[in-house]
């Protein structure tokens, strides 16, 4: 997926970019309002992450401009203003959602997913593996034409493994990606989710293999 990040603080922007790239997405970074407008007019993005306080103007002006162009790329506002009234006015201006700085990446990820699912309409990419189809935007998995209801963590685990097929993920790494930091979970908690996912994938060409002492890997036979 392709993200546009509008953020004037370079340190924070670098951190967000590296974190999003880690998930296998592409991200462009604009540090000014003018650049942001230029980027959004020329490039096709799946999602825009927008800071409100920018050196050459208010991020809300970008929102207005963006909506005036009838672009429906979802926008998630990154705001340092935690006041409820600010949050409401941001949504009134046409933002799809907001996260308050500093944010949990898992929360940002969850909000992006929710926004994309809401917005995903006609044209969306569908991945096919034999009798299994998966639409990443909607987060929908079907096997033999039947929609499988995956729980959120199962879905995220599946995406993670699917995006890096053939790569081994350690339990630790998976725990980091699936749980928030205020949850104290043992690395073994991941076994439950691997077990459930394996059960869902029983009659498909996708297989999760265990590698003792190393972790798990998804393969397409």
């Amino acid at each position: 997926m392709k993200y546009l990040l509008v953020e004037d603080n370079h340190e924070l922007a670098n951190a967000i970019c590296s974190r999003i790239k880690l998930d296998g997405h592409v991200i462009d970074h604009a540090d000014k309002l003018a650049d942001a407008i230029a980027y959004s007019e020329t490039g096709e993005y799946d999602l825009i992450l927008l800071d409100i306080m920018l050196p050459d103007g208010d991020g809300r002006n970008f929102l207005k401009h963006h909506r005036n162009l009838k672009k429906d790329t979802p926008v998630i506002v990154l705001t340092a203003r935690s006041q409820v009234s600010d949050r409401i006015s941001i949504l009134d201006l046409g933002a799809d959602d907001y996260v308050t700085k500093p944010f949990d990446h898992a929360e940002l990820d969850a909000r992006c997913r929710a926004v994309l699912r809401r917005k995903s309409g006609s044209s969306q990419q569908i991945l096919k593996f034999g009798n299994l189809t998966f639409s990443p935007l909607a987060g929908q998995l079907s096997i033999k034409g039947k929609i499988i209801n995956l729980r959120n963590r199962e879905l995220r685990l599946f995406e993670l493994l699917l995006n890096a097929r053939g790569q081994i993920f350690s339990k630790q790494k998976l725990v980091d990606r699936l749980f928030t930091y205020d949850e104290d979970v043992s690395d073994n908690a991941i076994e439950v989710y691997i077990g459930r996912l394996r059960k869902h994938l029983e009659n498909t060409s996708l297989k999760i293999s265990t590698h003792r002492g190393l972790g798990y890997r998804l393969d397409n036979d």
């Binding site: 924070l12 951190a15 340092a80 500093p102 949990d104 990446h105 980091d176 990606r177």
Partner: peptide, 28 residues
């Protein structure tokens, strides 16, 4: 002042958090 103060405090916090977050993915 409150908005500005919040912005000034939260942005570096967000930077630290994002770095810590990203680093955690690489450290074992």
């Amino acid at each position: 002042f409150i908005a500005e103060a919040a912005h000034r405090v939260r942005t570096p916090l967000a930077t630290v958090r994002s770095y810590a977050d990203a680093t955690l993915q690489r450290v074992s």
